[in-house]
Each structure stands twice: as structure tokens, then as C-alpha cells.
Write a protein that binds this DNA or RNA. Structure first.
Lengths: 238, 238
DNA sequence: GTTAGACACGAACACTGTTCTATATACGAA
DNA sequence: TTCGTATATAGAACAGTGTTCGTGTCTAAC
């Protein structure tokens, strides 16, 4: 090798790194890992951040690989909701405490959804027929029946409760997202919202302006508890 | 012009057609037209089909032009919901008929949303602070107050009702979409759903299997009416 | 050793919302 | 009528999304 060649060799780019990922892993990804990781991304960044690419990155794989484990994104959504429902503990129905029990199941589902901001949007975009959601419905049905509620009323009330829980959680998530975005933070500041409602033109919004404080009152999940109260007490007398 | 040039001229592509759209219209598009057209697209094809490109095509303009009239797609969503709310007629509150009145407003809103399949998803993705949605809330508040409901309970009940209406309509739209897609049409066939529920393993789903008929019963908006009944009767006693 | 199937990747596709720049046009003033 | 300006719109392109298809690699079964 003459000096020209040695110099050229010194300036040669090194060969491609030998650390390229193997085309197939020794231990394949599982669908459980997919769901776990997806929930982790949602918990940290919100449901809207969960893209196939984001999820694949979190799994250190490529987005196309996900389709070996899920049919499509809607299928992933269903798996996510099923996983959350699987985490709901269903009590043995107690006729003496059925009201508290049904409220508690709904509150648990609410809290489960709220751990994953925005995920209830997936619940509202699917028809609830997989076994885990039916399991939760079965558990709720058992409680209402133990409380003496007629089967049809029980079934319809469960439908309403599940819809309300999902919608309530979604609204909370939307508000929280607004708080984070900071572009309309006043929307989620109760005091400021009260002031704005109170300042509405009285000719057009007499009641809203007058009762701004009451309309914006409530802390924590007061509204949730109130609505569940209406549904539970109502179904008890049907 | 020598023969070479004449031959070249014979092979020259003709000039661009003179029927190109004018760069500027005599009568500019208005934001009202944008909203009207968007609602038309949703009514015909569903909310998910409404893209900026689809909307622009329906307006015979380019997608970039829409941004002269709306801030972004979320803004368009807000305009859409505001328009739907503007179409809700609010009765003069009658203390003797307040229950029927509040049910009627909710049913009107439901029907308004259902004319535009899936649009309630937009309602669930926004914080309801624009004047048209506040107007509907004001009208509902007036009815409940006329019925003797306490202001705070009224406010909280309205919140619940609006959430439920939107969620209910979204679920209906999801079901309808499934029916159209035909890939899981059994999901929305009540008889088939009943059969499947009845066939669930009795050890795991005893109540669901036993009461499959009751759980899947109901026609039209029975479930909606039932739930509104619970909310209205409940708030009357708060 | 061979083969089939499962898993994963890469490239690419069709599509989405949006921005930025350019330009044609309408309109008003002179 | 002409000219200048403002407005409405288009075009191009960007960054991003979900998904498909073809291919490479590995493993288990035979």
C-alpha cells in the first residue's frame, strides 16, 4: 500500500455500524407489551399523542411491526379500553349497600379513565361488545338486580352510566389539555369563568349572570357524584 | 418563421385553458357559507368525512382559502356546534310544564346532532363557552328555575344533560357507521345481539345471559327518554 | 438440513391540517 | 380610463398520520 492509498484509507468512511437491529427479535413483542406501552404513552402524554409511530418508538420497533399484533388503530383502542375495564374490581353484590356499590364501580371506572388523559374518547368511539366491557356491565347488573331494580331499567341505567362516565372524563381531559396549552387558560379557572358569566349581558343571559357562582361551583368530582346520584336514586324508583 | 419553427409551433401544447378559476371571486366566500357547506358534507357523509380538502372542494375553492375564514379545524368545529345550538328553540318557561320543556329541549338538541352523524364528537372535544351554547344553557336554566330547582342543582344537571346528549348521539352515530360499514353488522342488530348475550357462558355472565332480552330491549329513543327521565325527576327532588 | 410460518423492517402510499408566498382580481380614487 | 392598493384565493410544500406490501431474519417442526 503506497502513501496515496494509505492516505485515502485514512479518509475512508468507516463501514456501516454492526449494531443494526436484527430483522427479527429473539423475544418477539407481545400484544400485552403493546397495550402496556400504549397506556404508558397515554398516561405520560395524553391520548392524542398516541400515534403508531410514537408507540413503535416507545417499543423500539417500527410502526409497521405493530400490525403483526393489532389489526389497526381502532383495534388498539379496543384493546386499551378492554385493559382498563379489566382493571375494574367488581364487588360481591350486597342488597344493603348496592347504591354505594354501583357508585363505587362508576367512580373506579372514572378514575381508571382519568389516569389516561383523553382515553375515554376511545370508549366513545367503539361499540362496547368485548368481553371485558361486558364483564363490567355484568358486574353492574348484578349490583342493580341485588338492589331490586328491574332488569330492563337496570340495563338502561348501566348504558347511561357508562356513557356519562366516558363523557365526563373526556370533558375533564379537554379542560386539562386547555390548561396545559395555556391558550385559553381562563376557561378552566373557576374564578375567572364565574366572573365572565357574571359579566354577561343581563338582558340576554339573566339567569346565567345572576347565578354565575352556583353554576361554577363544585370541587373535585362533585358534579360527577351529583349526576350519579340522580341516576342511582332514579333507577331505584323505577 | 422558417419550417423548423413552424413545425415546432404545430407541436406546441396549447395554452392553458381560459376557464381557470379566477384568483379572486367577485363575491367572496363567507364564514356562514363555510359552516353551511360543512354541515351539508357532514349530513351527507358523516363528520369523519369532513376534511379541509373535502370542504374546500364542496365550496369550489382551495383548502388554503379556508384559513381566511376559520382559524383552524378546531375553530371550524366550534362554529359548527354553535350553528347547531343556534337552531335550538328555547321555550318561554312554564312552571306547570317545565319537565316536558326541559325534556323537549334535550330532545331537540339530540335530533339536531343526529342530523349530522358524528358531529357531537366535536361538542365533546370543546369547552362550551361560546355564546350560542351558553344561550342554550341559559334557556335550560330558565326552565329548571321556573320549575323550582335550586340554581346549583340546575346548573349541574344541565352539565350532565348536555354531556349525556352528546355522548348518546355519538354512540348512535358509531352504531350507524358500523351498520354502513357492514363489517360487524351483528353488533347493531338487536335480535342478533340478544342471541349472543343469551349465549354467553352462564358461569361468567349469569345475569347478562338471563336478561339478554331486557338488556337489548327498547326502540327509537327509549333509552334516551329513560335517562332524561331519571335526570329530570332526580333534579326535581334536589 | 430444509421448509414454512411468524415477526419485524423499510419504503412507500394516500391522506390530513396547515403555513407561507405569490398572484389575480376587484374596487376606489384620481 | 388608468393606476394603485387591498383582498381573496391558489399553489407549493411541509410535517405529520395510519397503513400496506414486499422482503429479510429467525425459529420450530419435520
Amino acid at each position: 500500500m503506497n502513501p496515496r492509498e494509505r492516505r485515502a484509507a485514512r479518509h475512508q468512511l468507516p463501514p456501516p455500524e454492526a449494531d443494526a437491529k436484527p430483522r427479527r427479535r429473539k423475544v418477539p413483542i407481545t400484544v400485552e407489551q403493546v397495550v402496556d406501552t400504549a397506556l404508558g404513552v397515554i398516561a405520560a402524554e395524553g391520548y392524542e399523542s398516541l400515534t403508531m409511530r410514537r408507540l413503535a418508538a416507545a417499543l423500539d420497533t417500527g410502526p409497521a411491526s405493530l400490525y403483526a399484533h393489532v389489526v389497526n388503530k381502532a383495534d388498539l383502542d379496543e384493546l386499551l379500553i378492554a385493559r382498563l375495564c379489566a382493571g375494574i374490581r367488581l364487588p360481591d353484590p350486597d342488597p344493603a349497600a348496592w347504591r354505594e356499590q354501583i357508585r363505587s364501580v362508576c367512580a373506579d371506572l372514572r378514575d381508571q379513565f382519568l389516569k389516561y388523559p383523553g382515553v375515554s374518547r376511545a370508549a366513545l368511539a367503539m361499540v362496547p361488545t368485548d368481553l371485558e366491557t361486558v364483564r363490567v356491565s355484568e358486574g353492574m347488573l348484578a349490583i342493580l338486580l341485588a338492589g331490586g331494580v328491574a332488569p330492563r331499567a337496570a340495563g338502561w341505567a348501566i348504558d347511561a352510566m357508562l356513557l356519562y362516565v366516558a363523557a365526563y372524563c373526556l370533558e375533564i381531559s379537554v379542560m386539562e389539555q386547555r390548561r396545559v396549552d395555556d391558550d385559553a387558560a381562563w376557561v378552566v379557572d373557576p374564578d375567572e369563568l364565574r366572573r365572565r358569566l357574571a359579566a354577561l349581558p343581563v338582558a340576554t343571559f339573566p339567569h346565567t349572570a345572576r347565578y354565575a357562582a352556583e353554576l361554577t361551583s363544585g370541587a373535585g368530582h362533585d358534579r360527577f357524584d351529583f349526576t350519579l346520584g340522580l341516576l342511582v336514586d332514579g333507577v331505584a324508583s323505577r
